[in-house]
Simulated scan of single mutants.
Amino acid sequence: MAMTRGTGSGRTALVLVTAGVALVVLVALLAPLLAPYPADATGGTETGRILRPPSAAHWFGTDELGRDVFSRVLYGARVGPVVAAAVVTVSLLVGTAAGLVAGYFGGWIDEALMRLTDVFLAVPALLLALVLATVLTPGPVGLTVALTVTWWPWYARLVRGEAASVAGRPYTEACRALGLGHRRTLLRHVLPNASTPLLVQASTDVGGVLLVTSALSFLGLGPQPPTPDWGLMVEQSQNYFTTQWWIGTFPGLAIMLVAALFFLLGDVLRDRLDPRHTPRIRP
C-alpha cells in the first residue's frame, strides 16, 4: 500500500494555518468587543496619554493623539484584509468567467479576451493600480476597484489554460453530443478541473494584495484619516519612528504576519491538493 510521506505534518500545518486565518476573521468581526478603547478615542486634555510607550494600560502604547495603538490595530483587521479579500473575490469571479469562455469556445472569442488581458498585463500591476487609485476617490472602494482591474487578468489566464485543455477531451465532447448546454458543461465539467489551482492562487493572492493595499495606503491613496488602516498607521508614524517606535512597528508587524499567513495557506493547500507536490514512499 502506498503511503504518503509527511501526511501527518501536512495535515497539522493545514490545521494551524487555517486556525490562524480563522483568528484573523474573528478579530475583524469582534474588534469592537476585543478592543479596550474605541479606535478614535483620543487622550483629550490628558496630555499624559499622548505618545506613551507600551504598558499594562496600553499594550501597544499610544500615538500622537493619545489613541490606543492596540485598539487601532484590532480595528485595522476590518480594513486592509477585508479590502484584500474583496479584491481577490471580485477578480476571481471576473477572471474565471472570462477564462472559461475563452478556453471553452476558442476562436475569435478566445483571441479577443486574451488580447484584452494582454493589454492589462503589459502594464506593471503596481503602476497601473497606482494610476487608477490616483484617479479614483481615495478610500476602500476606490482602492478595491483599482486593484481588481489589475488583478483579474491573472485568473483569466490561469483558467483559460485549464479550460482549453479540458474542452477537447472525450467527456466534454460527449456532453456536447448528449445535448447538454454550454453553461452546464462549463460549471460541472470544465470549472472543477480548474478549482485546485484557483484555490491555491487565490489564497496566496490575499497576502500579495494586502501588501499592495498597505503600500497604496502608505502613499495616501487608500483609506483616509481617522480610519484605523495598517498602511495608513505606518505612514502616520514616520515622524516618530526613531523615538516612538511602537506607533508604526505594531501595524507593520500586523501587515507582515497576516500576509505571511495567507502565503503559507497557499503553500499548504498546494502541497495538499496537488499530487505533483506530494512526495510518496512505496514499500
Rank of each mutant, 00 (worst) to 15 (best):
R5V: 13
S9N: 05
S9P: 00
T12Y: 06
T12A: 15
V15H: 04
L16K: 01
V17M: 10
T18G: 13
V21Y: 00
V27T: 06
V27D: 01
A31K: 08
P36W: 06
D40Q: 10
G43A: 06
E46I: 04
W59Y: 14
F60S: 07
T62F: 06
D68P: 11
D68Y: 13
V79Q: 07
V79D: 03
G80A: 13
G80T: 11
G80S: 14
P81M: 09
P81I: 06
V83A: 08
A86E: 05
V88E: 02
V90P: 02
S91Q: 02
L92A: 08
L93D: 03
G95A: 07
G95V: 06
G99A: 07
G99M: 04
V101M: 04
V101A: 11
A102Q: 04
Y104K: 02
G107F: 05
W108Q: 05
D110C: 02
L116K: 00
L121Q: 11
P124G: 11
A125Q: 11
A125Y: 03
L128S: 13
A129H: 04
V131D: 14
L132T: 09
A133N: 06
T134L: 12
V135F: 06
T137C: 01
P140A: 11
V141G: 09
L143Q: 03
L143S: 03
T144F: 06
T144Y: 03
T148S: 13
R157Y: 02
R157A: 02
G161H: 01
A163M: 02
A163G: 02
A164W: 00
S165Y: 00
A167H: 00
G168K: 00
P170Q: 07
T172N: 02
E173H: 00
A174S: 10
C175I: 01
A177I: 03
L178R: 13
G181W: 03
H182I: 02
H182S: 11
H182M: 02
L186V: 01
L186I: 03
R188P: 00
P192R: 11
P192G: 12
N193G: 12
N193T: 09
N193D: 09
P197E: 11
L198G: 05
L198R: 09
Q201H: 14
Q201S: 15
G207W: 05
G208L: 06
V212S: 12
V212P: 01
S214W: 06
S214I: 08
A215P: 11
A215H: 12
L216R: 07
S217T: 10
L219A: 15
G222L: 10
G222P: 15
P223S: 15
P223C: 12
P228D: 07
G231H: 04
Q238E: 08
T242S: 15
Q244G: 03
W245H: 13
I247C: 08
F250M: 14
F250Q: 13
P251E: 08
L253F: 13
A254K: 12
A259T: 10
L261M: 13
L261Q: 12
F262L: 09
L264Q: 10
L265A: 15
R270C: 03
D271R: 15
R272C: 09
P279Q: 07
R280E: 07
R282F: 07
